[in-house]
Amino acid sequence: MPLAKRIIPCLDVDNGRVVKGVNFVGIRDAGDPVEVAKRYNQQGADEITFLDITATSDKRDTLLHVVEEVASEVFIPLTVGGGVRELQDVHNLLNAGADKISVNSTAVFKPEFIREASSHFGSQCIVVAIDAKQTQWLDKGDGQDRWEIFTHGGRKATGIDAVEWAIKMADYGAGEILLTSMDGDGTKAGYDLKLTKAVSDATLVPIIASGGVGNLEHLVEGVKLGGADAVLAASIFHFGEYTVQQAKQAMRDAGVEIRL
């Protein structure tokens, strides 16, 4: 009886509404986050992730409020990310009811932050989110694919190799890695399986595959070919194409260990 693979619906939240971007731009409204979270909970989601894409910090209180409301009704793990810069931000989100905090840009500018946050709050609640894009720039002539990580919601290149970064972040105390392929995000063409596999093989912390899911077969591939421990998807669930229950059944039918 191995550990079940997780299916994680992801809610991109902008100023208190669920939205879904395509390749990080272009926004489609997908509803009230509390209602959406409750629906996924009823469908048997293993976990729910909220990513706050609100650019300004004054609107951040809206997210705290959303997290509070969801946490009082939804009793599965909640991961929350977006704009986490200080230990106080982690503290506030945990207090609002989040179980895990996802950190992206701040980890790049201040890697020590991950060390501090994980030693202070425990590795189990610190997720490092990596947005990566395949690149020729980091090619070392060894025939291996390379991916570069980006910050600021995919707007700023960093010159950092994604696999090396994942190893470093795990070493600094990240308890999990949320790995988004920017090439795949919003395209519905499937996860970047090579990227997922490369990161999963290189680290011993759980990997969440993200970016590009268009159908249920993609979820199966993420686990079976990408080696992911959890698969994250947004739009296939938001717009009613599939329920979480259908996704789980499809994975079980494909021989993936799942909690039904």
């Binding site: 550990l3 079940a4 011993l204």
Partner: peptide
């Protein structure tokens, strides 16, 4: 993977 993180029977 360590930690064990997720749903187990």
């Amino acid at each position: 993977k360590i930690p064990q993180m997720g749903w187990n029977q």
